[in-house]
Design a protein around this nucleic acid. Structure first.
Lengths: 207, 207
DNA sequence: TGTACATCAGTGAACGCGCGTTCACTGATGTAC
DNA sequence: TGTACATCAGTGAACGCGCGTTCACTGATGTAC
């Protein structure tokens, strides 16, 4: 366990991003003002602009970090699952269970998907930020798709279905589950949707 | 076919709401300014405030209309489906096919779900608007849930599953499918997700 | 070890623009007698 | 049919506040010799 030593600047930058992300997930990017962030962070406005070239730069940095974190978390879950079973289907089922458990254990529920939030404010961001949301979704299609193809080899499904669609469905169910959970003020709806997806995967390949 | 005669005021009000909705689905509510709407609508700012008490009032009116329209559309699809089959499962499968076809036929793809957009800007709106998004989701859970229960009576599923979750899943897959389609710039991803949900429903109840 | 300089991590004040909202007013259309 | 009045559907000008951004400056820490 290495403790990453953060310089003072890195700490402040992280604090700004943490506070901004919370606000963005509650109100959207446009409604989150720099004034509000710096008030909470306890710095001045010029301090903010020392860390970020402009507001779009903050958006980009937040999204990059969000995508990296997501990758790290899922990577960890996949590794755990792979250690528990060599069979691709069972490993994937274990992964989905771990994923659902993780979402169920978040104290206040999932705070929201930054990618989804950005997609609904697409026109605010520069092209490179928009490209990042696209790439984010493509990576998960590829990642889940690979595993589904290995599963389909060993457990040929009776009804034929597009495995890329099935991979996309996990993203869709997660994004949709977060919206559902937020809208109905019930954090458990997200893990429940993931477990439902899991049981459909099970039924599809195990019949 | 009755042609609803709209007064001049009703026409302007509708035009404002149409333009506002397009903008909100592209940039979010906070980033959509009244100045921008009235420029497109060709009226003055005071003209806007003749029709809406304040900006939140516009948000409320748009959401109410969106929910009403959604209800009308789904109601029409359910009626069509019920005419084509008396069996609850087959009727629901027909409904899902009609729904997917409708989404596939939108020229530029689904412009976005206003409810989802609002959920990601929750803190901008007054309590009554937030309540409306909650109620919107609950209505669909009830509506789809009823049909699923009738299906489960006649076609008991082998694996036990929560029918409310399965009802919620349609909302989730639709919301998630819209995000996916927007993010990947491929309108067909939404109907594909709906059809995938359909084939999972089929597999679940028909085995 | 001491000194000179560079970089880091900000501060403080000012900027102009755009935002949502208000208010007094107005021409066109509709209604009552 | 003519006139008086009411309602509809806006206009025009002004408001103050908050927004993102810039710029010149500064004290603390790090590095080179």
């Amino acid at each position: 366990m290495t403790v990453r030593v953060q310089s003072k600047g890195e700490q402040t930058r992280k604090r700004i991003m943490d506070l901004a992300q919370d606000a963005v997930l509650q109100k959207g990017f446009a409604a989150t003002s720099i004034d509000e962030i710096i008030a909470e962070a306890g710095i001045t406005k010029s301090g903010f602009f020392y860390h970020f070239r402009d507001k779009n730069d903050l958006a980009k940095a937040m999204l990059q970090r969000y995508l990296d974190d997501e990758w790290t978390v899922f990577d960890g879950l996949f590794k755990q699952a792979d250690e528990l079973s060599e069979d691709p289907l069972h490993s994937f089922l274990i992964f989905l269970k771990l994923f659902a458990d993780l979402m169920a254990d978040l104290p206040n529920g999932h705070p929201g998907c930054l990618v989804a939030s950005y997609v609904y404010s697409e026109h605010l961001f520069s092209r490179d930020v928009r490209t990042m949301t696209t790439e984010g979704h493509l990576i998960w299609r590829k990642r889940f798709g690979e595993r589904l193809r290995r599963i389909a080899e060993r457990y040929p499904p009776k009804t034929q279905l597009d495995l890329d669609d099935l991979a996309d469905m996990l993203s869709a169910v997660a994004d949709g589950g977060i919206i559902l959970a937020k809208s109905l003020h019930n954090p458990m709806l997200l893990p429940k949707q993931i477990l439902l997806y899991r049981s459909l995967i099970k039924a599809t390949f195990l019949g």
